[in-house]
Design a protein around this nucleic acid. Sequence first.
DNA 1: TTACTGTATTACGCGGTGTAGTACAGACGG
DNA 2: CCGTCTGTACTACACCGCGTAATACAGTAA
Lengths: 133, 133
Amino acid sequence: MQIRIVAGSNAAIYKQIADQINRAVAAGDLEVGQMLPSVRQLARELVINPNTVAKAYADLVQAGIVETQAGRGFFVAKRRQVYTKTERMRRLDESIQSLINHSFSLGFSTEEVLDRVRELFAKALRGVPESTS
Amino acid sequence: MQIRIVAGSNAAIYKQIADQINRAVAAGDLEVGQMLPSVRQLARELVINPNTVAKAYADLVQAGIVETQAGRGFFVAKRRQVYTKTERMRRLDESIQSLINHSFSLGFSTEEVLDRVRELFAKALRGVPESTS
DNA sequence: TTACTGTATTACGCGGTGTAGTACAGACGG
DNA sequence: CCGTCTGTACTACACCGCGTAATACAGTAA
């Protein structure tokens, strides 16, 4: 697992890390039960503070993507439902509404956006790293 | 044109205003050339500071959605291209990548997301107000 | 015991948000 | 011309959350 962070990005470092792992899991590049690089090791590699990595991992735990065993490390978790059905839907809608607002102000049509969404989803599942949010 | 702001929202007030006008224009509820409520008047209505409304309007000008005529007011602008083609695309992709990240961590499939995007786009174009970003 | 692991606390800089006040300038109707 | 509406431009301030960092504490296992 190779994590890359972009210095001049508007995206926070911890978010870049979390996003890349999130996508790696979704794409199957990281398997259930597999151990993630340790907080300190990854921090050394990226030359950042261990807490920054810890925060990224904490977010992933919160999302149910990874699990932690104190003193042992972080591991890719089995998919489980973290939120209620309505909460899950509410959060998806929130993200979509944001996309809609941006699309409108950029002057894109529904179809243009849908096509591009389809395209980028496919690319993400083929394992291409990307960080934005 | 009726603007509603939600107090306990994580979205900034100026953003809620901008989003609602953005959508109203996209949905055709506000026509080209139509005058927006004045900064001071809308501020009085919503019981907020005029500067907050001005900031929302400034964002819309920046996005090319409305135009301003000093001393007269803000008016819905004719659609025009603000960004270069690549920059426009870059911004769209950025929003979509964000959606993809959220969708993955929520465990939604590509198809589920696409369906929902289609649905919410349709709803937005029917003129239902919404604020998120 | 040693050397790994994660955890918790605290602190600090920065920027976004919102408010407030004040002043200036263009538009327009009487 | 005057009054009153419009937007514009500053400055200042308080607040708060984000992002990062430094440091110390605690669990795990060879």
